[in-house]
Design a binder for these strands. Structure first.
Lengths: 155, 155
DNA sequence: TATAAATATATGTTACAACATATAATGTTT
DNA sequence: AAACATTATATGTTGTAACATATATTTATA
């Protein structure tokens, strides 16, 4: 069933529909993913932070600010996010002796194992858009890139 | 700058990028909209509920459940949403004499005026994707529809 | 070098999302 | 009609997002 049918065709125009469609579709895609994360007792933001810590572990340890810059959410409360991960033993956290304002955060073995155990999520991520052809995904990415460029947000 | 550049090209494949791109772009679009709502001291969900109450006022009064079914969010806590709108005087709420379990909720004059005062949002909504051509938006909508159909969610 | 400005992180607060459970009214079954 | 199931809404609870503000440390300026 199309969104148009679902919402009784009450759109002013194609652009209006596009906006709602983006919101609605993304929310739906995200819902399934969130359920998986929930089973592993971790929030989306904690997961993102942990992924960053793994992705950049060649540059470890990382500061709170470094992680913050790479989070999808603007102004994520990384300080408390790392707190939660620390409580679970998934990251280590120390004072940075070079700059005692900073923290040195690193993913632990337990954290790496945890991410491994979520391997299913990776497959899930790759499969969520599998109903599109390669060409269609590329077109989707092109359109999304164009939208973001058109917004004129900093960065 | 493309998402690819921003995130250092660390995507496994085009599908993976597509998923992150959807999340990221939608979040960015939504952010500006949320800021506008915030200025008017109303949350996104309250706004959605109020829009539903206006959109279906030919069938007014509406029950909580009727509104709930039409919310974008699954399992929205419409009972308390309406509570907030009621506190602001934007809706009326009465017991439905035909079925005393139900509430009869209606948008008030103040509620209608309030939505009118947010007219700018409407223009904003229509303009957020204005960087795309009509043809591109249609293609975007087609792709999004296809994604949602491919998910196999109920409804 | 004392003072001010900037930076990095932490903490306080409020409202809300998400979940479970409770209550009241209606519908169904025997 | 009594007992049970279902429905509609409300309430309780917990964690967290979003915001502001505070603290500690470093850097810049006079």
């Amino acid at each position: 069933m199309t969104l148009e049918e679902e919402l009784n065709g009450r759109f002013r125009n194609e652009y209006h529909k596009g906006l709602i469609n983006l919101t609605y579709t993304t929310r739906q895609l995200n819902y399934g993913f969130l359920q998986t994360l929930k089973k592993h007792d971790i929030t989306e933001q904690q997961y993102n932070a942990l992924r960053i810590l793994r992705g950049f572990r060649s540059q470890a340890p990382l500061s709170i600010g470094f992680i913050k810059e790479r989070m999808l959410d603007r102004d994520s409360d990384v300080s408390r996010l790392v707190d939660k991960l620390y409580d679970k033993g998934l990251v280590s956290r120390n004072e940075n002796p070079d700059d005692r304002r900073q923290k040195s955060v690193e993913i632990t073995e337990k954290g790496l194992t945890f991410l491994e155990s979520m391997g299913g999520c990776k497959n899930m991520e790759d499969n969520m858009l599998k109903c599109l052809t390669e060409k269609e995904v590329k077109e989707l990415n092109r359109l999304l890139d164009k939208i973001r460029e058109g917004q004129g947000y900093p960065k």
